[in-house]
Write a protein that binds this DNA or RNA. Structure first.
Length: 569
RNA sequence: CGGGGCGUAGCGCAGCUUGGUAGCGCACCUGCCUUGGGAGCAGGGGGUCGGAGGUUCAAAUCCUCUCGCCCCGACCA
């Protein structure tokens, strides 16, 4: 392609509504433009990268034995009603009606559609296993779309669904997809980590997320410094830390203390001059229709997902002020477990090992000190209710946990029979009996993967693409296109590179050198060739890699060979 | 959904307090000049001031409503 003929509207200034590097740079590099909140148009340069990511995904999925299909974006309500997700998926599911007032939704994911198709077409164990995938536009009406392609409402996703006759087969495919995903993200040139994850609204028995490591990531991940354990913080197991009994202080008598207006952990610990690990927070939750209390140490954070799973609740929200007052008979801020009647109390493991701690008094402006359990209150049980913190023991070995941030670019689930059961997807085994198909599903955010690559590769001048997903592998700058020699040499290199199968962009614009350098850096093409009068006098052009500052002189006749080597490397 | 902020030319913004000719920089077009890190000069095009209603002789500016967008929150008692 020629720069002069391609729509690459680069911006000198950063649009004011962009926050993270990938969003700013995709806008500045002329790759995307916003149409509405969380909805974007891909411009030629942006689409090239999207297509390259898709190509890698497609090649690896095909290699893994999956077959490509394409399902509709608009899905009839009945399918979603059949799986019960019409009611459970919530507001993220964009519902629409056609002219006959029939209900549809825009597909946010396609378990229902694929299961419906497969149950109609697959009857025998002989046809299993099968893995079907598509690369398609999804719509999820996110509460708060942000960060450009990172969390859009409309986005391109590769989603795959596998169907199996046996658990072993399903698990073998899960492993196959795990390995395939590793290959995909390696080929994209990304630093990533596969972590154990919660299954969330998709459901299923176990799952892994593929996280691109980046400080701007929305997810926190915990990983062990000595073994290969890694998990999303939502899921990471906080190991109960047991102290030998002799280390526990002798129990002292409970005392009421006045703590006027002190509600938060900081206020109470500051007022009483104690550290946060001597206090126990009491959080009142509404789990479906019941009220429960959860206890965690003052310096720990409750993990609602863990609590929700323990309670087996469909919906879990923090109770509002009225409910808190009703449950504790005190204004919010003074809740505590002592004398709390009529509601179940769930405590974090860490609370079990505390002695003489501080809790709310269930009375305005009162806290209790030197509280102990089980002496002063009973709990339903001790569970893992909190988020892990740096330095926690690894649940698998004696190592310590570290925390990092990541961008979720892929997610694989072993679904089991959740959908096949709801939608009666069955097959006949060799004995002629009906069985539920066992399913797996596997997703990759295509646009998010591209955005994640930018989060991982950028500097003050712009994007630094990994070669495999760069919109072009090489950019040739004709520094002063009006100089016939320069023009001729640049054209010749351009044509030779095309013949050699290289993806090359020729900057043939009548621009000053400075502008060309700035644009080339901004759009992040990995390999740059500067063709200028200065070098040509000696028969040289310059070879420069985006990721390093060095410039090397290369003889005109050698440049194609050099570039081929660099691309292959 | 709660709180805050912003909508003025393609982009970034000023003007609004105190109503009275719609401006600046970049980008764009023409010409000259220039050509190795976003040059310079001259000329030029482009705006229902998000939308609707109201107050007023007069509204980008004041009032009401509305739409859109951004940020924070919607767990830490």
């Amino acid at each position: 392609m020629r720069f002069s003929q391609m729509l690459i509207p680069t911006l000198k200034e950063t649009p004011s509504d962009a926050e993270v590097a990938s969003h700013k740079l995709m806008l500045r590099a002329g790759m995307i433009r916003k149409v509405a909140a969380g909805i974007y148009t891909y411009l030629p340069l942006g689409l090239r990268t999207i297509k390259k990511v898709e190509k890698i995904v497609r090649e690896e999925m095909n290699r893994a034995g999956a077959q490509e299909v394409l399902m509709p974006v608009v899905v009839p309500a009945e399918l979603w009603q059949e799986s019960k997700r019409w009611d459970f998926y919530g507001k993220e599911l964009l519902r629409i009606k056609d002219r006959h007032e029939r209900e549809f939704c825009l597909g946010p994911t396609h378990e229902e559609v694929i299961t419906d198709m497969v149950r109609g077409e697959v009857r025998s164990y002989r046809q299993l296993p099968i893995n079907l995938y598509q690369i398609q536009t999804k719509f999820r009406d996110e509460i708060r779309p942000r960060f450009g392609l990172m969390r859009g409402r409309e986005f391109i996703m590769k989603d795959a669904y596998s169907f199996h006759a046996t658990e072993e087969s399903a698990e073998a495919e899960y492993k196959n997809m795990y390995d395939t995903y590793c290959r995909i993200f390696e080929r994209c040139g990304l630093k990533f980590r596969a972590v154990e994850a919660d299954t969330g609204s998709i459901g299923g028995s176990f799952s892994h997320e593929f996280m691109v490591l980046a400080e701007s990531g929305e997810d926190a991940i915990a990983s062990c410094d000595s073994c290969n354990y890694a998990a999303n913080v939502e899921k990471a197991v906080a190991r109960s830390q047991r102290y030998p009994p002799e280390e526990r202080e002798a129990e002292k008598p409970v005392q009421r203390v006045e703590t006027p207006g002190r509600k938060s952990v900081e206020e109470v610990t500051g007022f009483l001059k104690i550290s946060a690990d001597k206090l126990v927070k009491t959080l009142i939750f509404k789990a479906d229709d019941r009220i429960v209390a959860a206890l965690v140490r003052g310096d720990h954070e409750i993990n609602e997902i863990k609590l929700k799973n323990i309670l087996n609740a469909k919906e879990l929200v923090l109770a509002d002020q009225t409910a808190v007052e009703k449950a504790t008979k005190a204004p919010s801020g003074f809740a505590g477990p002592v004398g709390l009647s009529g509601i179940e109390i769930y405590a974090d493991h860490a609370v079990e090992h505390m002695a003489n701690f501080v809790v709310g008094g269930n009375e305005k402006d009162i806290h209790l000190i030197n509280v102990n359990t089980p002496r002063d209150f009973a709990v339903k049980g001790f569970y893992d209710l909190r988020n892990v913190v740096v330095g926690d023991h690894c649940p698998r070995c004696d190592g310590k946990l570290e925390l990092h941030r990541g961008i979720e670019v892929g997610h694989i689930f072993k679904l089991g029979t959740k959908y096949s059961e709801a939608m009666k997807a069955t097959f006949l085994d060799e004995k002629g009996t009906d069985n539920l198909m066992i399913m797996g599903c596997y997703g990759i955010g295509i646009g998010r993967t591209a955005a994640a690559a930018i989060e991982q590769g950028n500097d003050a001048n712009g994007i630094i693409w990994p070669i495999p997903i760069a919109p072009f592998q090489v950019i040739v700058l004709a520094l002063n296109i009006k100089d016939e020699q320069v023009k001729e040499a640049a054209e010749k290199i351009y044509k030779s590179l095309i013949e050699a199968g290289i993806e090359v962009l020729l900057d043939d614009r009548d621009e000053r050198a400075g502008s060309m350098f700035k644009d080339a850096d901004l759009i992040g093409i990995p390999i740059r060739i500067n063709v200028g009068a200065k070098g040509l006098k000696e028969g040289n052009v310059e070879l420069k890699f985006r990721k390093s500052p060095e410039v090397s002189l290369v003889k005109l006749d050698n440049i194609v060979k050099k570039v081929m080597e660099a691309v292959a490397a």
